[in-house]
């Protein structure tokens, strides 16, 4: 597995948020870290090739651009998890889906343009899979959301 050196780590800690929004963002990052922009670009490309970096881009607040989001949970028999996930994952609004250790063992997030659409999709999922009583748990308060990892 690719092992990160100090330059990689400095770059990762710099680029996870407040990515520069001026014309030459990689030069700005290079200036901030006292590196050359060639090095910064080369390192970032290498970390993408090695699957350290998934993507670089914007993450939008669904509620601020006219979307609704929720967290859903289902109790799925172990041997049906794969087929259940196939149905659930086919919806583009499902962005995260995990098997978790609990009676409610499949947890997924759903984003759509209205709560009615989400309700409709959950009903569809139940009728396609036979898994009923899917919990629908929209957030009422957001205290923290930060996918930043100090490396």
């Amino acid at each position: 597995m690719y092992s990160l050196d100090n330059i990689d780590k400095q770059i990762l800690n710099r680029i996870q948020s407040n990515f520069p929004t001026d014309a030459k963002p990689f030069s700005k990052i290079a200036d901030d870290l006292n590196l050359s922009s060639d090095i910064v670009i080369k390192r970032i490309l290498r970390m993408k090739e090695n699957n350290i970096i998934r993507r670089i881009g914007g993450n939008f607040s669904p509620g601020k651009i006219g979307y609704e989001s929720t967290l859903c949970a289902a109790k799925v028999p172990a041997k049906e998890i794969e087929s259940f996930a196939e149905v659930v994952n086919s919806y583009s609004g499902v962005t995260h889906n995990y098997v978790r250790e609990h009676d409610y063992n499949v947890w997924f997030t759903f984003i759509a343009q209205s709560t009615e659409t989400i309700d409709k999709y959950l009903k569809e999922i139940s009728s396609k899979t036979g898994i009923n009583n899917i919990l629908n748990l929209p957030a009422t308060n957001l205290f923290k959301i930060s996918a930043l990892f100090k490396v």
Partner: peptide, 23 residues
């Protein structure tokens, strides 16, 4: 882009890591 950012529509702008691969 900067207007969207200033209005807080961009929750976070930057790299998303594969955390399985980052420890």
């Amino acid at each position: 882009m900067n207007d969207l950012n200033d209005q807080g529509l961009i929750r976070r702008f930057g790299a998303t890591l594969k955390h399985q691969n980052s420890g």
